[in-house]
Design a protein around this nucleic acid. Sequence first.
DNA 1: GCCGAAGTAGACAGATCGGTCTATTTTTGA
DNA 2: TCAAAAATAGACCGATCTGTCTACTTCGGC
Lengths: 186, 186
Amino acid sequence: MGRRQDLINTALRLFYEHGIHAVGINQVLEEAGVAKQTLYNHFETKDSLVEAVVEQRDSLFFDWLEQRMSSRPAGKEALLEMFDAVNDWINNRVPTLNRFYGCFFINTCAEYSDPEHPVHKRCAAHKARIFRLFKHHAESLSNSEMDAEELANALFLLKEGAIVKAHVEGDLEAAVKARAIAERMM
Amino acid sequence: MGRRQDLINTALRLFYEHGIHAVGINQVLEEAGVAKQTLYNHFETKDSLVEAVVEQRDSLFFDWLEQRMSSRPAGKEALLEMFDAVNDWINNRVPTLNRFYGCFFINTCAEYSDPEHPVHKRCAAHKARIFRLFKHHAESLSNSEMDAEELANALFLLKEGAIVKAHVEGDLEAAVKARAIAERMM
DNA sequence: GCCGAAGTAGACAGATCGGTCTATTTTTGA
DNA sequence: TCAAAAATAGACCGATCTGTCTACTTCGGC
């Protein structure tokens, strides 16, 4: 797989579970079984590694969600499938996403509050991608009360809220309840 | 105000802006103008200080929100006022809450992922308090489609989603949009 | 077989971490 | 007034942090 990818995978797992500032470079190296100089051959600084980790999580999560949604007819059914997918994630039924510790991008922005920081920007870009995915499906719904933008936004907020509630309060049913609310809106 | 309170206030400001693990004890001491031994007379460890900080933020935020909501008739109007209050917060019109860096409790849980950790538990307790406040107002609404629990939950998720979206994506209109969605549900 | 690239272990640097300790000064209340 | 309590400055501890450096080994392509 290559040392670079080993480092990214190990760092993602540790950063996601414990937070970024709580995990030192040495711990990543030890668990990845890679020498320190090798890391600094591939990445200029720890922050460069963090950027690569965020990019990796972006691909991993987006591709997974897009695939889940495309397994159902575009529109309402795909959007409801999204809540089912999130529910599976919250309840640790999606091994490729690792154990559930909330949203990695929200968590990362908690540690990189400056919106101009490259790491924060990448997290924002991920959320924008997800929103566009929702909007694409919302556009194939005709709804007199709400236009596609507003519907996508509503579903996005419900999803974000459910992820946060599941993590902070340990509510494993958060996505199921969010789905019920969403269904009534469509 | 007392050194203990000085320490809590300074720590809250720094922890909220930069995250908890990114801020050292020495920085808190320097900015608070307090000696190190004084801190360890009042708190056993850094984590004890963190607990006190979370408790402080809980009071500060809850009391502020409850007051804002009670300025309007109980029920629908108070619940809509909640979104206006959050909108003011996001747009830095509430000096007592400090500059907006997302939700302190969500951010803190990102750094304390273990749900059994006292700090995480206090964050969860805060969210439960807020939810009960919402539910109280939701109960004074008669709604055939949705019971009070479900309505409170929907509004809660929209609020959490809006705060996250405002922080991660810098969307200063997030609470306004959430309010519009909420209004249609009531 | 050989050369250069890539990876290894591990010492090292300078800074910072949370936390302890001592010795001195300030504050406070009976 | 005077003693106890509280706060001070700052040295100190061992551990850890990111990042650099050296010297040795492994490995793949020509």
